[in-house]
Design a protein around this nucleic acid. Structure first.
Lengths: 222, 222
DNA sequence: CGCCCTTTTGATCTTAATCAACGAATGTGG
DNA sequence: CCACATTCGTTGATTAAGATCAAAAGGGCG
């Protein structure tokens, strides 16, 4: 976060993220249509965001882990456009948006940082569009696990071993696949010795191969 | 745009978007990997943005019409993450990002507006994710044309009749379909009397039906 | 322990991709 | 202005990937 601030400024920044909320597994942090007041930073746990279709079905748009921001889509219309649901007991920092905006006016580094966060969200979404628009099932799952693995690593956890917090159906919803396809494709990845998966426990046995597959290359070195 | 500004402030805002650039059909405004310096607002014409995959294939992420903003994905890493290509002879306003940031610090309404623009980009992308993740070909094209139609209308043009600026392949790339599928599906929509399409000339003969189809309902009223 | 949710597995069907050929439009240079 | 080349679009036949339908096995939790 920004540097070179006075004590008073730091204090203000501190108050910005002082409020915390617990969200139990299965509970929602906000719903689509709710008035937008705050962004949220995940302090612990995992969330999914879910967009509702007119048909009644819905689709997972993102999984958020510790440190990631929830609610950016609310700014546009002062309304949340998705549901945010905790996949396990979780805790978030509440970031009142008015206050963030005000502080951004005062501290340019905060503004700069915030713009980057928003832009990176756009970049991330466009990468998902790429995945959904042009990858096959195997590639999608390889990309998904590679991404999870990197995010785990960035948080100081093992990149080769983790417990998935989401069901096959949620993974499928995010990746544009049916849960049966997810299950079958996982087995295929396991047969190819890229991963080992047992229920929710994932072991990445061949990270390089997984990454190559995600990039559309054969899993075995060319 | 913001109101309640002094003459001096208005002048500054004026200089923000004073520079214009022409981009000939087929030419690029920027490329993926280029240093990010400016955002661009389309003054006239049409662009596509295109993201490159590691496999060498690429995918259209967006079509931009008059008034829409190009380059938001550059902020995150100070690097453009996509190519922007003019689909016809076009003109853009150059918005130097440094300057925009500075002015945002001074004029809160500008900051607010800019945040909304970014957030709406996120919302839009997530709607595309929904399209790519869970709609069938017919639905995707119905949604695409409904959207185009609305945007035309918002610009004061006919919502029922327009000239497409993009090829079948570009439409397919954007919608996650092959060009042959686009062609066939267009014929199907035409047979169902929802549209008439002749080369690039599109007539929406049944906008309500098209919208229903886009929403996953049957095109004919229930 | 029993119930329910999740996951796996199998058989079949549907959609869109792929391969292939042709026709239509656009643009270029002579 | 016309002949040619090139890009773009349509159409047909076939294939492949994933969806769907169905059933059973495995885990977790009250």
């Amino acid at each position: 976060m920004p540097v070179g601030l006075t004590d008073h400024e730091l204090e203000q920044l501190d108050t910005l993220v002082s409020a915390r909320t617990r969200v139990a597994k299965g509970e929602s942090l906000f719903h689509s249509g709710d008035a937008f007041k705050s962004l949220y930073a995940v302090r612990s746990g995992t969330f999914k965001t879910r967009i509702n279709t007119e048909e009644g079905t819905d689709q997972v748009t993102e999984f958020q882990m510790t440190g990631e921001i929830l609610g950016l889509d609310g700014i546009g219309n002062n309304l949340h456009m998705c549901d945010a649901v905790a996949l396990e007991d979780s805790e978030v920092c509440v970031i009142p948006y008015e206050q963030l905006d005000t502080l951004s006016q005062q501290f340019r580094p905060l503004q700069t940082h915030f713009h980057r966060v928003m832009s990176r969200e756009i970049i991330k979404d466009q990468n998902v569009m790429l995945l959904l628009g042009s990858m096959r099932a195997e590639q999608r799952l390889a990309a998904f696990f590679s991404n999870l693995s990197e995010r785990q690593k960035a948080r100081g956890f093992s990149s080769s071993q983790m417990n998935l917090r989401m069901t096959r159906e949620e993974i499928g919803s995010y990746l544009g696949l049916k849960l049966e396809t997810v299950s079958r494709t996982l087995k295929k990845l396991q047969n190819d010795a890229l991963i080992e998966i047992n229920q929710r426990h994932l072991v990445v046995t061949n990270p390089a191969g997984l990454k190559r597959l995600a990039a559309g290359k054969p899993a075995t070195e060319a």
